[in-house]
Design a protein around this nucleic acid. Structure first.
Lengths: 334, 334
DNA sequence: AATCTTTGTGCAAACGTTTGCGCAATTATT
DNA sequence: AATAATTGCGCAAACGTTTGCACAAAGATT
């Protein structure tokens, strides 16, 4: 049973209010009693109860962050930005993972509501539409990262990211460029895919649905997708992947079939995970300002909490050219 | 302002206690009122306040997990085991990252105390000794993962892990085997290092302090350490790394200096991150039963919470031989 | 028909804080 | 020397729940 403010009050011979004020450095308490009580509290091993405090103040100075996948370092990097911004504003952060499961995601957001956090950030939402649904009774600010369809979101522009990749591949002479999605669910709203198609159109390359196959954002999905692409005739000469994890799977599957990257196939990732720079071949990918995204997401949430107006934000990605891409070989099927 | 139990009571014309009991499916409430109130609550958008509930019940059904590094998928995998076990026991999990900073770690554990979680798990503690320090006033169950010195801990036996690696490298003919630590702070208590030394002794290979250099558990540390090792004459023929991240750094630094892995140097990691199996060369490493570790950590905490006796647990790792290791070349310095 | 159980509900206290208000004692202002 | 402002503290209500106890009404047991 932890020691409470009343225990301290009793021992000090003062009222609980005085103890509370002394501990919170209230101006109308004498310096003398303050230091006396603070020392006493320390010596008694007092640890204030946030839960009682939150109940009466009706705020928690805490935000909840729901994360899609803890084994993908991309989200870890976003968290860094959020944590930094939150710390700078004296906010605590509660984290939880929903393992890419929309039901768990919603359950989690619900739990955050019950905990009465001041606001919520969702990283990699799988249930975007729910947040605009009035039936959900979400009564607190929520910002989504990378879901530009939602009112309160900060995203990197994956459409232009996709275009950059295609432009670059086309400039290398590629014309049969495959795209691997992050999963069938993502497919419809995929900005990368939209950018891919727009860029193809701009280069007068007809869109070929066979070249677009589903992955799952993880290595295993990349492997499956690559094998599927290899069964095409003719196969693509370049593969644009939903993210770096997928790209790792793709490169492996290709290599396992005896192909070489980039000589036989160019492969491009997305996210610029630290480790893929050290991969072999070092991955050509699209870098996102993750830290800034995290910070901005927190700032937007913070403005929302203070009832200030916000509008969706869009940040620009950057193409990082490394060793997994090269000029298109002469078409084998000439 | 969210709707409270009183609001519902008023609208239903019953007392708050009845509402509370109806929502919690108390046996002494008629089915009729139960369904009536439950529907009413739903329609009013009622979301119970855990904070009020926690205050009166004096428990939170929540555990806190402090994580050293969110960008290392190793911890993500541990979390999976914890989350699964916790969900099975109707516990919520609160996560937070301390970025390998001992001060932030302690601050975080302190914050968990203030939140009155029922117990705490620390993954990758940097402040182990604090948990045995009575001055810290930690008044709740805490289990540490991979800190076998602590009373309540579940660890994989990194000592035998270290020995397995050295035994294997020696069997390949290596005698100049380097070890890269996870950081100067870890060095003293490193079980891997102890295992490394024991195995060397067993093979009558004298211990050479020059071959033990500090990394930091991340890629950058691996790069630095590898360069340091290359400046030795003669350099080692094999490098045993604190973890897989370090190994990635090492392989890169070696390659950048024109060396080949495993032809010129054998490299061994630790953790068996999924992606390192897809690395090139695929990494020889030590697999840990991460999911089981996570589950057991939760189970231990759960026993602690119920005041049942516990004792430290130790799980066995497993050597995974892949392509980053091979027989020692003829010594260049013959 | 009297007693005993059971069923369904309400009262009120409690959890550990914060905070508006009141009030006495001290100090500053005329 | 009277009044005003300031300083230091306590009272008590409040936050939104849960829960032991009381109690009336209905049903079951003699």
């Amino acid at each position: 049973m932890p020691v409470s403010i009343k225990d301290i009050a009793q021992k000090a011979g003062v009222s609980p209010s005085t103890v509370s004020r002394a501990l919170n450095d209230h101006p109308r308490i004498s310096q003398e009693t303050k230091t006396y009580i603070q020392n006493l509290a320390r010596s008694m091993g007092y640890i204030p109860s946030t839960v009682a405090r939150n109940l009466v103040t009706r705020r928690t100075a805490t935000i909840g962050v729901a994360i899609a996948d803890l084994t993908d370092p991309y989200y870890g990097r976003l968290m860094l930005g959020i944590d930094d911004a939150a710390a700078a504003h004296n906010y605590q952060v509660l984290l939880s993972c929903f393992y890419r499961d929309p039901d768990r995601e919603l359950a989690l957001v619900h739990d955050f509501h019950k905990r009465r956090v001041d606001g919520i950030i969702v990283l990699g939402s799988e249930a975007e539409s729910a947040y605009s649904d009035p039936d959900q009774n979400f009564f607190m600010p929520i910002v989504l990262v990378n879901r530009p369809g939602y009112r309160c979101s900060v995203s990197v522009d994956r459409n232009v990211g996709g275009q950059m990749v295609v432009d670059y591949l086309v400039s290398l002479g590629h014309r049969r460029i495959a795209f691997i999605t992050g999963g069938a669910r993502q497919r419809i709203r995929s900005r990368r895919l939209a950018g891919y198609r727009q860029a193809l159109a701009r280069h007068h390359i007809p869109y070929n649905p066979d070249l677009v196959v589903d992955g799952d954002g993880e290595i295993s999905g990349g492997i499956r997708a690559a094998n599927q692409l290899l069964s095409l005739s003719p196969p693509p000469t370049a593969v644009f992947c939903f993210n770096d994890m997928t790209a790792i799977g793709v490169i492996n599957a290709l290599r396992r079939q005896g192909f070489r990257v980039p000589d036989d196939f160019s492969v491009v990732g997305f996210d610029d995970l630290e480790m893929t720079a050290y991969y072999s071949p070092a991955l050509t990918t699209v870098r996102q300002p993750t830290h800034e995204v995290g910070e901005r997401a927190f700032d937007m949430l913070s403005r929302l909490i203070r009832h200030q107006p916000v509008e969706p934000e869009m940040l620009n990605p950057e193409l990082v050219i490394r060793a997994s891409t090269t000029s298109a070989a002469q078409p084998l099927t000439a």
